[in-house]
Write a protein that binds this DNA or RNA. Structure first.
Lengths: 229, 229
DNA sequence: TATTTAAAAGTATTATATACTTTTATCGCA
DNA sequence: TGCGATAAAAGTATATAATACTTTTAAATA
């Protein structure tokens, strides 16, 4: 029988999290990016990251970073994957876990964002990013699309009250394609996921579109596929 | 402007990988488990793991572990997620990344498996596992089901030559449900993913079932959903 | 040669997706 | 006040796919 290696005398690693923060504003899916403040790569655009402490989980580290930057807590956030190429960070061996988060841009703390020298960029037109952050964004976008195909992501990205047209435009921008208004409405309403309010948004049309809010997740029909990828 | 923290003086972490190794044998989906050889938890069943070195990626660490145990390389393997509860391992702070792998049980090195005191367990009847390894298995199974729903996983789990009945039974055991033979055949063949050989397996029926082999992945119709979960 | 077995092929029904059309509510303006 | 414009909302018709079920086939064997 072959023996396993003991805990002592093993190599230890710097562990970080990097947050891919998605938001939605003026009909566009956007990403919160930062001017890096330390070498290497100082002055270039990057995701916001943070070190993982010994007494927390990586999820908690990501929540901590998100709170620090946006002032928001209890936000949808999901692990993307681990990035661990030995030379990925020229500053040293750092293993980083990417997370993506979905927030309502209107509700976050803009002063904090300014404080950190951050900017919202449309995902359709991103600058070059340092290290492997571009790959983190690509993987996050793929995950977001997958999630949006069987889950209503509007809950996280839209304000509390929204119209079906706004939800459709959000989906248009996530998938970079135009969904048929009638069919989109039919499918979304068949999920029984939201309630219609007695208010209309007349900004976009003469007739006006009803506002909706989401029902609690437990009450909706979860077995419906929104987009067939 | 708020400044970011320097690389120096950060806490470092022990980093490990744990491998959830799936195989398929006598009509059952199985999992390779190990009798743990060191404290804490010595003698209990666990996944096989290994430490991550400074000069490798976590994927390479997982491949290294898989090769050591099974003698196999170039195996399908995918990251599941990061497990980082500070107290998950009573032996100390270890952050572990779970991977799941799919192998053809027939083709692996049984002597190596014996050497490491390992055993194939049917997933329908697993023993208690140490630490959070049970959760790793649950997440891996969920990932495997999701993958199997849009991808033919037979390529990795079955021998080179197999019958449609064997492929269906593999799917039955992955999803713990009986798929209709006619409809399963119709859907699988519509993917145009395999070629029929001029050989029959007459073990199961008088008529005999044709053997098939997989075409290269590039040639198959990838847009077909196998199982609607 | 009749019987048995499961493979293989085929059919019929239902459900869903997609493309397209019609009606509706409301505003601005003649 | 009533008409045109606008996009929402509702409705329809067709194509495609999922599901349940039936029939035919090939080969072994009693």
């Amino acid at each position: 029988m072959v023996s396993q290696q003991e805990y002592g005398s093993q190599e230890k690693h710097l562990l970080a999290v990097d947050c891919v923060i998605f938001g939605y504003e003026s009909g566009e899916l956007k990403l919160l990016l930062f001017k890096r403040q330390l070498e290497p790569g100082k002055g270039n655009w990057s995701l916001i990251g943070g070190w993982v402490d010994t007494l927390e989980t990586v999820e908690q580290a990501a929540e901590r970073v998100l709170l620090k930057i946006t002032g928001l807590s209890r936000i949808f956030q999901e692990e993307v994957s681990v990035f661990s190429a030995p030379d990925r960070d020229p500053g040293g061996r750092v293993v980083s876990i990417a997370f993506y988060a979905l927030i309502d841009i209107k509700s976050h703390n803009k002063e904090l964002v300014n404080l950190y020298d951050a900017k919202w960029w449309p995902v359709s037109n991103l600058p070059d990013l340092i290290f492997d952050h571009g790959q983190m964004v690509d993987e996050s976008l793929a995950k977001l699309r997958k999630k949006a195909s069987y889950d209503l992501v509007g809950r996280d990205l839209l304000p509390d009250e929204f119209t079906l047209t706004q939800l459709r435009q959000l989906y248009n921008s996530i998938f970079s394609q135009e969904f048929d208004p009638g069919n989109f409405r039919k499918k979304i309403l068949s999920m029984d996921a939201m309630v219609r309010l007695n208010k209309k948004d007349t900004g976009e049309s003469k007739k006006g579109a009803f506002y909706y809010t989401f029902k609690p997740e437990s009450e909706m029909n979860v077995a419906i596929r929104i987009i067939n990828m």
